[in-house]
Design a protein around this nucleic acid. Sequence first.
RNA 1: GUUUCAUGUCU
Length: 234
Amino acid sequence: VVVASALIEMYAKCENLDEANSVFDSLPQKDVVVWNVLVAAYAQHGKGYLALKCFENMQQHGVLLDQFTYSSILKACGSVGVLEQGAQVHEQIVDAGYQSHVIVQNALVDMYVKCGSLNEACKTFDRVKNRDAVTWNTMIAGYAEHGFAGLAAQYFQEMQANAIRPNEMTFSAILTAFTYTGLVEEGVQYLKDMEVFHGLKPNIVHINCMIDLLGHAGCFYDVEDLLKITSDLD
RNA sequence: GUUUCAUGUCU
Protein backbone atom coordinates (compact mmCIF):
# COMPACT_ATOMS: atom_id res chain seq x y z
CA VAL A 1 0.00 0.00 0.00
CA VAL A 2 2.88 2.34 0.75
CA VAL A 3 4.36 1.84 -2.70
CA ALA A 4 0.95 2.19 -4.29
CA SER A 5 0.20 5.48 -2.59
CA ALA A 6 3.55 6.85 -3.73
CA LEU A 7 2.75 5.65 -7.24
CA ILE A 8 -0.69 7.22 -7.20
CA GLU A 9 0.82 10.46 -5.98
CA MET A 10 3.35 10.38 -8.80
CA TYR A 11 0.65 9.87 -11.42
CA ALA A 12 -1.33 12.67 -9.84
CA LYS A 13 1.66 15.01 -10.03
CA CYS A 14 1.99 14.14 -13.70
CA GLU A 15 -1.69 15.04 -14.04
CA ASN A 16 -2.48 11.49 -15.06
CA LEU A 17 -5.50 11.07 -12.83
CA ASP A 18 -6.93 8.17 -14.82
CA GLU A 19 -3.83 6.13 -14.22
CA ALA A 20 -3.81 7.18 -10.56
CA ASN A 21 -7.38 6.03 -10.26
CA SER A 22 -6.76 2.67 -11.88
CA VAL A 23 -3.84 1.93 -9.57
CA PHE A 24 -6.15 2.83 -6.70
CA ASP A 25 -8.89 0.53 -7.99
CA SER A 26 -6.49 -2.36 -8.34
CA LEU A 27 -5.65 -2.34 -4.65
CA PRO A 28 -7.23 -5.12 -2.62
CA GLN A 29 -6.55 -3.30 0.64
CA LYS A 30 -6.79 0.45 1.04
CA ASP A 31 -5.64 2.42 4.04
CA VAL A 32 -6.48 6.00 4.94
CA VAL A 33 -3.35 7.34 3.25
CA VAL A 34 -4.18 5.94 -0.19
CA TRP A 35 -7.67 7.36 0.07
CA ASN A 36 -6.21 10.69 1.11
CA VAL A 37 -3.80 10.71 -1.80
CA LEU A 38 -6.64 10.19 -4.27
CA VAL A 39 -8.89 12.79 -2.68
CA ALA A 40 -6.01 15.28 -2.62
CA ALA A 41 -5.16 14.51 -6.24
CA TYR A 42 -8.68 15.37 -7.37
CA ALA A 43 -8.90 18.40 -5.13
CA GLN A 44 -5.59 19.80 -6.34
CA HIS A 45 -6.50 19.46 -9.98
CA GLY A 46 -9.80 21.24 -9.74
CA LYS A 47 -11.82 18.04 -9.87
CA GLY A 48 -13.90 19.02 -6.89
CA TYR A 49 -16.84 16.81 -7.69
CA LEU A 50 -14.66 13.74 -8.08
CA ALA A 51 -12.97 14.54 -4.78
CA LEU A 52 -16.35 14.81 -3.09
CA LYS A 53 -17.48 11.55 -4.65
CA CYS A 54 -14.32 9.85 -3.47
CA PHE A 55 -14.81 11.34 -0.01
CA GLU A 56 -18.29 9.86 0.09
CA ASN A 57 -17.00 6.43 -0.94
CA MET A 58 -14.31 6.63 1.64
CA GLN A 59 -16.85 7.14 4.38
CA GLN A 60 -19.05 4.33 3.10
CA HIS A 61 -16.04 2.07 3.40
CA GLY A 62 -15.78 3.05 7.04
CA VAL A 63 -12.37 4.68 6.78
CA LEU A 64 -11.47 6.85 9.75
CA LEU A 65 -10.90 10.36 8.40
CA ASP A 66 -7.95 12.44 9.52
CA GLN A 67 -6.57 15.97 9.13
CA PHE A 68 -5.27 15.17 5.65
CA THR A 69 -8.69 14.08 4.48
CA TYR A 70 -10.38 17.13 5.92
CA SER A 71 -8.00 19.73 4.52
CA SER A 72 -8.24 18.22 1.04
CA ILE A 73 -11.98 17.91 1.03
CA LEU A 74 -12.37 21.49 2.23
CA LYS A 75 -10.32 22.60 -0.73
CA ALA A 76 -12.67 20.63 -2.98
CA CYS A 77 -15.72 22.27 -1.34
CA GLY A 78 -14.16 25.66 -1.96
CA SER A 79 -13.39 25.04 -5.59
CA VAL A 80 -16.89 23.77 -6.24
CA GLY A 81 -18.41 26.50 -4.09
CA VAL A 82 -20.66 24.30 -2.00
CA LEU A 83 -21.11 26.21 1.24
CA GLU A 84 -23.63 23.83 2.81
CA GLN A 85 -21.47 20.84 2.20
CA GLY A 86 -18.46 22.71 3.52
CA ALA A 87 -20.32 23.67 6.68
CA GLN A 88 -21.32 20.04 7.09
CA VAL A 89 -17.68 18.99 6.86
CA HIS A 90 -16.95 21.70 9.42
CA GLU A 91 -19.31 19.96 11.85
CA GLN A 92 -17.70 16.62 11.18
CA ILE A 93 -14.33 18.18 11.94
CA VAL A 94 -15.55 19.47 15.28
CA ASP A 95 -17.05 16.08 16.13
CA ALA A 96 -13.83 14.35 15.19
CA GLY A 97 -11.79 16.76 17.30
CA TYR A 98 -9.72 18.25 14.50
CA GLN A 99 -10.99 21.79 14.95
CA SER A 100 -7.74 22.99 16.50
CA HIS A 101 -5.46 21.67 13.81
CA VAL A 102 -3.93 24.73 12.08
CA ILE A 103 -3.90 23.31 8.58
CA VAL A 104 -7.51 22.21 8.92
CA GLN A 105 -8.43 25.63 10.29
CA ASN A 106 -6.67 27.35 7.42
CA ALA A 107 -8.51 25.11 4.98
CA LEU A 108 -11.77 26.02 6.71
CA VAL A 109 -11.11 29.74 6.41
CA ASP A 110 -10.24 29.32 2.75
CA MET A 111 -13.31 27.19 2.08
CA TYR A 112 -15.57 29.89 3.52
CA VAL A 113 -13.80 32.59 1.52
CA LYS A 114 -14.11 30.62 -1.70
CA CYS A 115 -17.76 29.90 -1.01
CA GLY A 116 -18.33 33.62 -0.61
CA SER A 117 -18.97 33.64 3.12
CA LEU A 118 -16.60 36.23 4.53
CA ASN A 119 -18.55 36.20 7.76
CA GLU A 120 -17.90 32.55 8.50
CA ALA A 121 -14.34 32.90 7.27
CA CYS A 122 -13.80 35.71 9.73
CA LYS A 123 -15.40 33.80 12.61
CA THR A 124 -13.22 30.81 11.90
CA PHE A 125 -10.15 33.00 11.55
CA ASP A 126 -10.82 34.50 14.98
CA ARG A 127 -10.84 31.06 16.55
CA VAL A 128 -7.39 30.19 15.22
CA LYS A 129 -4.99 30.42 18.15
CA ASN A 130 -1.64 30.12 16.44
CA ARG A 131 -2.11 31.84 13.13
CA ASP A 132 0.60 31.21 10.61
CA ALA A 133 1.37 32.97 7.32
CA VAL A 134 -1.21 30.85 5.49
CA THR A 135 -3.95 31.87 7.93
CA TRP A 136 -3.23 35.54 7.38
CA ASN A 137 -2.70 35.22 3.64
CA THR A 138 -6.00 33.43 3.23
CA MET A 139 -7.88 36.17 5.01
CA ILE A 140 -6.05 38.94 3.14
CA ALA A 141 -6.81 37.25 -0.17
CA GLY A 142 -10.42 36.90 0.93
CA TYR A 143 -10.76 40.60 1.65
CA ALA A 144 -8.95 41.43 -1.58
CA GLU A 145 -11.31 39.34 -3.66
CA HIS A 146 -14.31 41.00 -2.09
CA GLY A 147 -12.97 44.49 -2.62
CA PHE A 148 -12.05 45.31 0.98
CA ALA A 149 -8.64 46.83 0.37
CA GLY A 150 -8.65 48.65 3.70
CA LEU A 151 -9.20 45.47 5.68
CA ALA A 152 -6.64 43.64 3.59
CA ALA A 153 -4.09 46.34 4.41
CA GLN A 154 -5.09 46.26 8.06
CA TYR A 155 -4.55 42.51 8.28
CA PHE A 156 -1.26 42.96 6.48
CA GLN A 157 -0.15 45.22 9.33
CA GLU A 158 -1.63 42.99 11.99
CA MET A 159 0.14 39.91 10.78
CA GLN A 160 3.43 41.68 11.22
CA ALA A 161 2.40 42.92 14.64
CA ASN A 162 1.91 39.23 15.41
CA ALA A 163 5.46 38.47 14.29
CA ILE A 164 4.45 36.70 11.09
CA ARG A 165 6.50 37.73 8.07
CA PRO A 166 4.68 38.47 4.83
CA ASN A 167 5.76 36.24 1.97
CA GLU A 168 5.24 36.20 -1.81
CA MET A 169 1.65 35.06 -1.42
CA THR A 170 0.92 37.91 0.97
CA PHE A 171 2.11 40.49 -1.50
CA SER A 172 0.22 39.17 -4.47
CA ALA A 173 -2.90 39.07 -2.33
CA ILE A 174 -2.51 42.65 -1.17
CA LEU A 175 -1.65 43.84 -4.67
CA THR A 176 -4.87 42.41 -6.06
CA ALA A 177 -6.76 44.19 -3.31
CA PHE A 178 -5.41 47.44 -4.73
CA THR A 179 -6.19 46.40 -8.28
CA TYR A 180 -9.83 45.82 -7.47
CA THR A 181 -10.10 49.20 -5.82
CA GLY A 182 -7.90 51.16 -8.20
CA LEU A 183 -5.35 52.16 -5.56
CA VAL A 184 -2.36 52.53 -7.85
CA GLU A 185 -0.10 54.51 -5.53
CA GLU A 186 -0.52 52.00 -2.73
CA GLY A 187 0.26 49.09 -5.01
CA VAL A 188 3.43 50.71 -6.26
CA GLN A 189 4.47 51.45 -2.69
CA TYR A 190 3.90 47.85 -1.55
CA LEU A 191 5.86 46.52 -4.50
CA LYS A 192 8.79 48.70 -3.46
CA ASP A 193 8.46 47.71 0.20
CA MET A 194 8.48 44.12 -0.84
CA GLU A 195 12.08 44.37 -1.97
CA VAL A 196 13.33 47.11 0.32
CA PHE A 197 11.87 46.04 3.67
CA HIS A 198 11.12 42.39 3.18
CA GLY A 199 13.90 41.31 0.89
CA LEU A 200 11.51 39.59 -1.49
CA LYS A 201 12.06 39.74 -5.22
CA PRO A 202 8.86 40.24 -7.19
CA ASN A 203 8.08 37.14 -9.21
CA ILE A 204 6.00 36.73 -12.35
CA VAL A 205 2.78 36.76 -10.37
CA HIS A 206 3.59 40.10 -8.78
CA ILE A 207 4.51 41.57 -12.12
CA ASN A 208 1.21 40.37 -13.53
CA CYS A 209 -0.55 41.97 -10.58
CA MET A 210 1.21 45.24 -11.30
CA ILE A 211 0.43 45.13 -15.01
CA ASP A 212 -3.16 44.56 -14.06
CA LEU A 213 -3.15 47.32 -11.46
CA LEU A 214 -1.59 49.90 -13.76
CA GLY A 215 -3.52 48.72 -16.80
CA HIS A 216 -6.85 49.06 -15.07
CA ALA A 217 -5.95 52.60 -14.12
CA GLY A 218 -4.84 53.43 -17.65
CA CYS A 219 -1.20 53.95 -16.73
CA PHE A 220 0.22 52.40 -19.86
CA TYR A 221 3.39 54.40 -19.64
CA ASP A 222 4.12 52.88 -16.26
CA VAL A 223 3.34 49.45 -17.59
CA GLU A 224 6.04 49.91 -20.20
CA ASP A 225 8.50 50.95 -17.49
CA LEU A 226 7.57 47.90 -15.50
CA LEU A 227 8.16 45.61 -18.45
CA LYS A 228 11.60 47.19 -18.95
CA ILE A 229 12.48 46.68 -15.29
CA THR A 230 11.41 43.08 -15.34
CA SER A 231 13.23 42.18 -18.51
CA ASP A 232 16.38 43.49 -16.82
CA LEU A 233 15.78 41.14 -13.91
CA ASP A 234 16.35 38.03 -15.92
C1' G B 1 3.96 7.21 1.71
C1' U B 2 -0.79 11.74 1.99
C1' U B 3 -3.14 17.75 3.59
C1' U B 4 -4.23 24.23 3.62
C1' C B 5 -2.94 30.30 1.03
C1' A B 6 -1.46 34.38 -4.25
C1' U B 7 -2.08 37.08 -10.58
C1' G B 8 -4.60 36.89 -15.46
C1' U B 9 -7.53 33.92 -19.44
C1' C B 10 -11.20 29.88 -19.80
C1' U B 11 -14.52 26.49 -17.46
